[in-house]
């Protein structure tokens, strides 16, 4: 580009850590996470908010990070799939996804885990129907969702036990 583009300086919190970055005004949060911060867990499946593979939590709400500008993360708290486990301890959802074989190719898995965690945070005991509608913004082409739903049910049960 002939003219210099001015960058936006952003201070935010990602997975509990303070982070500062410069991004173009037009760059999405997904671009920033993947291309600037090396957090490639969130995937771009469509770029139009239809597949949920880029799901992250911003201030407690699940969003498609392809529809959020990098600049909009200023002052917020962002959680990505990289922030679910604690050290070497997996989150119960991660553990149940493994035990229930709830992934085949695994490319949608980060988005599902983030969306499922947000679902269980606001509804610790969802019905099957609530899980299905709660995850309807996330596309999986491999599993037919059966094992994903069962994994979320099992994780919810375990998390309720505390």
């Amino acid at each position: 580009m002939g003219e210099m583009m001015s960058k936006v300086k952003v201070s935010t919190t990602i997975n509990g850590d303070p982070v500062e970055y410069l991004c173009d005004a037009e760059e999405t949060l997904l671009d920033v996470l993947r291309d600037h911060l090396g957090l490639t867990g969130a995937k771009e499946g469509c770029g139009t908010g239809d597949c949920g593979a880029c799901s992250v939590v911003v201030d407690g709400r699940v969003v498609c990070s392809c529809l959020v500008l990098g600049a909009e993360a200023e002052g917020r708290k962002v959680t990505t799939v990289e922030g679910l486990a604690t050290g070497d301890r997996l989150h119960p959802l991660q553990q149940k996804f493994l035990e229930f074989a709830a992934l085949q190719c695994g490319v949608c898995t980060p988005g599902f885990l983030v969306a499922a965690k947000a679902l269980l945070d606001r509804n610790p005991d969802p019905t099957e129907t609530e899980i299905r509608f709660g995850l309807a913004g996330n596309l999986c082409r491999c599993t037919g969702y059966d094992k994903i739903v069962r994994a979320v049910q099992a994780a919810a049960a375990e998390m309720r036990k505390g």
Binding site: L90, L103, V107
Partner: peptide
């Protein structure tokens, strides 16, 4: 039998590297 898959941890933690994840 049904053991856990060997690439599982990478895929539930976001570490697995897919086509667009390389630079």
């Amino acid at each position: 039998t049904r053991p856990l898959r060997p690439d599982g941890i990478d895929k539930v933690t976001g570490r697995a590297r897919f086509g667009a994840d390389a630079s």
